[in-house]
């Protein structure tokens, strides 16, 4: 990498203005239905709680594959996202479907463990058959300027992943500035990330449109630089269909057609799916139904 020009900066006010403009897009009728369906297919249905149990994970997997059977043609979600000890349970429950299993690893959510411990955890997760690994980076190291450490951490995890897709969680809520978000995005992409992901969901703020837009722009610039397409996963805080559509508008107008697919864009969310379902039913029938008609797990 002999490009000596420093990576260009990000102007926060400019980002906010752009986001405001994109949020104002009016998505109605057919285009709304299309967006809602697309959203469903991009969801990583998530449960990341200390109290998770095998039966809870099984329920979640059932929901992932049977979203709302009264309405034919509704896609299933992209993946189920769980803690590493639940991988086998989820794999078993999802057998025969194309819903993927994603597991968080590397001392999620804090990332506070030695590299050896993290690598052992990733290794186990891959052995257990996870399709996707969602790792967290060492934010403390990044903020104190140890970029090489973080890059190596990601590269080593990537090595162990083998066929499994690697999503790198930047935890943007701890990165302080949008400049840091852009830098961390680049660092993760250059170190081999398949996806970059905003947040663990355990730190506030989690995903915001501003942070997500900056990451999209980094993905676009990196694509032009390397030819590689890196995916994006905003996670945490996206619980309404309307928000999801706003993210898709940003995606469409920043990265275009190639990224409008679950292969390159995911929502990390637990309650988003039901709101989207409710909107889909409303678009089709013209009336809002009670939330009680949609099973919560």
């Amino acid at each position: 990498m002999n490009n000596l020009r420093p990576m260009h900066t990000v102007d926060q006010i400019g980002v906010q203005e752009r986001v405001k403009r994109l949020k104002a897009r009016s998505i109605k009728q057919k285009s709304k239905l299309h967006a809602l369906t697309l959203t469903l297919s991009m969801i990583d249905l998530t449960t990341l709680e200390g109290r998770d149990s095998p039966s809870k994970v099984r329920q979640l997997c059932y929901k992932a594959t049977h979203l709302h059977e009264k309405f034919p043609g509704i896609p299933h979600v992209a993946a189920v996202c769980v803690y590493a000890p639940m991988i086998k349970v989820a794999k078993e429950a999802l057998r025969g479907s194309s819903v993927k299993v994603a597991a968080v690893a590397t001392a999620f959510p804090s990332g506070m463990a030695t590299l050896e411990t993290k690598l052992a955890e990733v290794n186990q997760a891959v052995q257990d058959g996870t399709d996707e690994v969602d790792m967290v980076i060492s934010r403390g190291r990044l903020l104190s300027g140890e970029h090489d450490y973080v890059a190596e951490e990601i590269a080593r995890v990537k090595e162990l992943c083998g066929q499994a897709h690697l999503k790198v969680i930047l935890e943007t809520g701890e990165l302080v500035t949008l400049d840091n978000v852009r830098a961390a995005s680049y660092l993760a992409m250059r170190a081999g990330a398949n996806f970059i992901k905003t947040s663990t969901g355990k730190v506030q703020p989690a995903a915001t449109p501003e942070v997500t837009l900056v990451m999209m722009q980094a993905i676009r610039d990196y694509h032009h630089e390397s030819g590689r397409r890196v995916g994006l996963k905003p996670a945490g805080g996206i619980s309404k269909a309307k928000q999801a559509i706003q993210y898709l508008v940003m995606l469409r107008e920043t990265l275009g057609q190639a990224w409008l697919t679950p292969d390159l864009f995911r929502f990390g969310a637990s309650s988003l799916a039901n709101d989207v379902l409710m909107q889909i039913v409303k678009q089709s029938t013209g009336i809002y139904q009670s939330p009680n008609y949609f099973s919560i797990d």
Binding site: Q29, H34, G227, R252
Partner: peptide, 20 residues
């Protein structure tokens, strides 16, 4: 820039319905 020219496709399957 990569060796191969990369272009983004904004003529997407999903487009916005009229919102007059």
């Amino acid at each position: 820039m990569s060796d191969k020219e990369t272009t983004l496709d904004f003529d997407t399957d999903w487009s916005y319905s009229p919102a007059p």
